[in-house]
Nucleic acid binder design. Structure first.
Lengths: 340, 340
DNA sequence: CTGTTAGCGCGTTCAC
DNA sequence: GTGAACGCGCTAACAG
C-alpha cells in the first residue's frame, strides 16, 4: 500500500519549489492581487500538483479564527434503548448544510460546555468560534449563566419573556393551539395531552392546547394531561395508563411524533382504531410521519429554516452584531390520523 | 450583560501572575511531576480562578495532533423530504461516546473528503487526526483511492474480499440469512425482498436471503426482489408495486426498518394484515421498531459496539498499528410482525 | 526543580 | 511586486 504523506508538505516547501518566498506563496494562495498574475498562477498550479493544502491549525492560530462552530445536541442513551428522536438528525442535517455553506466546520458534542468535567469549553479553549445549543437544558440556570458569559452563542428552544439570550425556535404555543383547534373542529372534545410539560417547549405546546380548548368553550380535564417523556418506551407506557384508567377520551395530542406513534401502537394493541375511535395528532413532522399507518397529522416545525436561522444569528453575533430571537411559524399538516 | 473574555487570557499572563516562567505553567497544567508539588498547586488554582484554559489550537500546532476525529456521514436531503434513517443518529451517538471517551473532538461532515470542491480534506489540512467514513460511497473507486492514500481512515460498511482497507460492519450476509430462515421456519415460502441491491450492504443481505432459500430447498423467484432505495416514500411506492402487480407473496424481508414500516403501511392501506396475511421482517432494530404496530421483527446490528469498534480501530491505525477488519454478529429480534 | 531558547506553519507589517 | 522579520500561544530541548 503506497503511503502518500502530503500532510507533511509545508508552505516553505512550496516556496522553495517555486523559488519565491513564503510570503509570496501565502499571498498567491490567498488570491491576493498584490502578487503578479503569472507568478500567482504558477504557484497555485505547483501547489495543487504537489497536493499541498494550507495547514488550517496554523492559519487559525495566526488569524485567531477557527472557522468551526460547535453544536451541542443532547443525544443520550437510556439503558439499552437510546432516545433517538429523528428530530435531532433532521436538525443536524440542516445545521450541517448551513454551516458548510459558510465554509466552516461543525464540531459535534453531546455534552454542554458548562460541564467541565471532560474537555473544556470549546469556545474559550479556542476550538470553535461559536456555539449552537439545541434545547434548553434541564438546568436552565446553567444555560443562562453560560449565555451571559459568552456572546457567541445561540440556542434552539422555547421563547419565554424572561430569557435574554438569542433563541431560535418555532412558536410552540401556536403549534399546540393549531393541533387542538383542529381536533376540536372535528368535534373531538375529550382531548388527552401526552408530553413532558417540564420541558419548556412542551409546556408551551400544552398552554396552546389549553387556550384552544378555552376558545372553543370546552372545559379542560386536568386528568387528561400526561407527563410523558420523549421516549418511545415510556410514551407507550403512558398511553397504556390512559387506557387502563378507562378514562373517556376521543383524541390525543402528542407532544412529538414519536410519542404519537407509540400511543397509536398502544391503542391498536388495545383494539382501538385510529382515527375512527380516537383522533391523534403529533408534533415535528418527522420523516416517518407521512408513511406511518395511519399517516400522521402533525405540526411541522420547518427544521430546515430553523437550522439556517440559528446559523445566521450565530454568525451575526460573531460579527458583533446585535441579534433578536426568531420565532418560526409552525404549520399543521393534515393527514389521516384524525379522520379528516 | 456582563462580558467576560477569559479567552483572551494567555499562558504568559498566568506565568506573570504566578511569578514563574511560561514553561513552568505549561508543565504544571500538564500535570508534569517535573514541577514542585506546591508551585503546581498554586498555578493550577490560579489558572482555574482566572478561568484560564489552554488554547487548543496553539497546542495542536505545537504537538502536531489535533485531538479531533472527522466523521463523514451521508445524511442527505431529497427534495423536501430528507432521508433521515434513525440508524445514522444511533451511529452518531455511539461514535460521539467512543470519541469523547478518548478525550477527542468529533468533526461532523456530510461531504466525503475527496470531494475537494468545498473545504479541503480535514486530514491533510490538519483539522483532524483521523477519519471515520460511514458507508461505502456510491463511488467505490474514490473511496478505495482515498483509503490507499491515507492510513488514518476506517470505514463502516460491507465486507468484500477485494477491499483492502480496514472496514467495520456487521455480517450482512448472515443477517439476511437469519431473517429469511426465520420466515421460512414459519412456513412462509413466497418471500419478497425490498432493498437497493446496488448498495454493498444490501447486496450481501440479499445474498444471505437467497442462501437461506436454497438451504431450505425453496426456489427463489427473481420477480420478488425489488430494488427499493432507503427512502420511506419510495419504499412505500415499491411496496405498492408489489401489490399492484398482484404477485403472490406471503412475506417481506425489508432491507431496513424504515422500508419495513413503509411496506406495512402500504399493505394495511390495501387491506392486508400483518402478520396474518403477510409476515414482515426489517433490519437495523431502530428505536421505533419495538413500538411500531405491529412490533417489528428485525435484525439488530449492535450499533453501539460498531461505533466503539470503529473508533478503536481508528486509534490503533493512528498509533501506527496494523488493523484487521471487524465483523460484528447480527442478531434476530423476534417480535410480532411475523406472527410467531 | 526551574528558566531560556527555539520553533510548530502560517499571515502580515514594513522595507526594498 | 516581492522578501525579511515578527509573532499568534504553546511545548520541548537544553542548561543550570
Amino acid at each position: 500500500m503506497r503511503e502518500n504523506k502530503p500532510e507533511e508538505l509545508t508552505m516553505a516547501d512550496i516556496a522553495r519549489m517555486a523559488g519565491v518566498s513564503e510570503s509570496t506563496v501565502s499571498r498567491a494562495l490567498a488570491g491576493s492581487d498584490l502578487v503578479a498574475e503569472k507568478t500567482r498562477k504558477r504557484i497555485t498550479e505547483l501547489a495543487s500538483a504537489a497536493e499541498y493544502t494550507v495547514n488550517e491549525g496554523a492559519r487559525s492560530l495566526r488569524l485567531k479564527k477557527t472557522k468551526t462552530i460547535e453544536v451541542v445536541i443532547p443525544i443520550e442513551q437510556h439503558h439499552r434503548h437510546h432516545i433517538s428522536d429523528p428530530f435531532f438528525l433532521d436538525m443536524l442535517g440542516a445545521l450541517a448544510d448551513a454551516i458548510a455553506d459558510r465554509d466552516h466546520d461543525m464540531l459535534l458534542s453531546k455534552i454542554p460546555p458548562w460541564a467541565t468535567d471532560k474537555r473544556s469549553n470549546a469556545l474559550v479553549s479556542g476550538r470553535a468560534d461559536g456555539v449552537i445549543i439545541i434545547g434548553q437544558s434541564p438546568r436552565r440556570d446553567q444555560l443562562r449563566e453560560f449565555t451571559h458569559a459568552h456572546r457567541r452563542v445561540v440556542v434552539w428552544g422555547a421563547h419565554f419573556d424572561d430569557e435574554d439570550y438569542t433563541i431560535v425556535g418555532s412558536d410552540n404555543h401556536e403549534g399546540g393551539r393549531l393541533a387542538a383547534a383542529h381536533l376540536l373542529s372535528l368535534g373531538r372534545k375529550r382531548i388527552a395531552f401526552l408530553g413532558d410539560v417540564s420541558q419548556p417547549e412542551i409546556k408551551l405546546r400544552h398552554a396552546g392546547y389549553l387556550d384552544a380548548l378555552q376558545q372553543a368553550g370546552v372545559a379542560a380535564d386536568e386528568g387528561l394531561t400526561f407527563k410523558a417523556p420523549f421516549d418511545s418506551q415510556e410514551a407507550f407506557a403512558a398511553a397504556k395508563i390512559l387506557l387502563d384508567k378507562k378514562l373517556e377520551f376521543d383524541a390525543i395530542f402528542a407532544a412529538s411524533d414519536v410519542i404519537a406513534m407509540s400511543a397509536i401502537s398502544a391503542l391498536s394493541n388495545a383494539g382501538m382504531k385510529v382515527p375512527q375511535d380516537v383522533s391523534v395528532v403529533g408534533y415535528d413532522d418527522i420523516v416517518g410521519a407521512a408513511w406511518y399507518s395511519p399517516a400522521l397529522t402533525t405540526v411541522s416545525q420547518s427544521i430546515q429554516e430553523g437550522g439556517e436561522a440559528l446559523v445566521r444569528s450565530l454568525f451575526a453575533r460573531i460579527n458583533g452584531e446585535a441579534t433578536a430571537s426568531v420565532v418560526l411559524p409552525p404549520k399543521l399538516i393534515i393527514r389521516q390520523s384524525c379522520g379528516a
